[in-house]
């Protein structure tokens, strides 16, 4: 495995996650979110949520699953089906995502692989520049 072969990882991830998908589909009650009764410290310390509807987007190139193993966002998303594993990588189903930001909080990637974007068209959606505060 050479460094410059990293681009092949997407293909192999698609292959290796095959059994995983099968197992999820067969799961007794499907996947359950990890029980988080108290938000992580980072969330407690944070400023209140901006008054905009948001949606999560996974930036695959920062995702730890690209080079190693991670599925923390999928495990912790409280909305069934909002985060899926597609070709080995997590991706957000925008229609189901409530924009709660849990996946952003918990993503342990060196550079957050989750981006919270304002959802244009939803009630309260603000201009993009508001997100940079």
């Amino acid at each position: 495995m050479k460094l410059n072969e990293s681009c092949s990882r997407r293909e192999w991830l698609a292959e290796v996650f095959q059994p995983w998908k099968r197992q999820r589909a067969e799961g007794v009650q499907g996947r359950q979110a990890m029980p988080v009764t108290v938000p992580p410290a980072s969330a407690v310390a944070a400023a209140p949520d901006p008054p905009v509807a948001r949606v999560a987007v996974i930036q695959g190139r920062f995702c730890v699953a690209l080079t190693s193993f991670c599925a923390v966002c999928v495990e912790r998303c409280p909305v069934p089906g909002a985060l899926q594993i597609t070709r080995g990588m997590p991706s957000v189903v925008a229609d189901k995502c409530t924009g709660c930001g849990v996946c952003f909080d918990v993503c342990p990637a060196p550079r957050k692989a989750v981006l919270m974007l304002p959802l244009a068209g939803r009630l309260g959606a603000g201009p993009v520049t508001n997100m940079n505060r």
């Binding site: 410290a41 980072s42 310390a45 944070a46 901006p50 948001r54 952003f104 919270m116 974007l117 940079n132």
Partner: peptide, 13 residues
């Protein structure tokens, strides 16, 4: 932790 918390609101990496 401060940077993580500060970036919670959105795109600030």
């Amino acid at each position: 932790a401060a940077a993580v918390a500060a970036s919670r609101a959105g795109v600030a990496a």
